[in-house]
């Protein structure tokens, strides 16, 4: 079940996320649930797979904002790194990033 404790165990900075939500747990958890299902993950994956760095940057940048606000640190950190690489339109192998992100996301979604 998606709980503060469970999130905390997976490395989410729940204190920060909750504070941003005026310490309204239900509200925070609802937003986290929505954030984990955000369409941006799929967009990001598809864009980098297709080598579309512009679309990749847009998707990463948007995701980064949401994940940061929810303080979903295990996702926020790799997405941030990707955002900076994509901002510079760096030709790189993004697969490990995607793998990492999707792995962390799956753990969280499994709650």
């Amino acid at each position: 079940m998606l709980t503060i404790e469970a999130l905390k165990e997976l490395g989410v900075n729940t204190q920060e996320g909750l504070a941003r939500c005026m310490n309204n747990e239900a509200f925070y958890l609802r937003l986290v649930g929505m954030g984990l299902k955000d369409g941006g993950f799929d967009k990001l994956e598809e864009a980098v797979a297709a080598g579309d760095l512009d679309a990749g940057f847009e998707a990463a940048h948007a995701l980064k904002g949401v994940l940061g606000n929810l303080a979903l640190t295990p996702l926020y950190t790799p997405v941030s790194e990707m955002t900076e690489l994509l901002r510079a339109r760096t030709q790189a192998d993004y697969a490990p990033y995607i793998e990492k992100i999707m792995g962390e996301r799956a753990k969280l979604l499994a709650l």
């Binding site: 939500c21 509200f27 937003l31 929505m34 954030g35 955000d38 948007a62 904002g65 949401v66 606000n69």
Partner: peptide
């Protein structure tokens, strides 16, 4: 444009 940010 991000619903979650709006809501927060």
């Amino acid at each position: 444009d991000e619903y979650i940010n709006q809501q927060i």
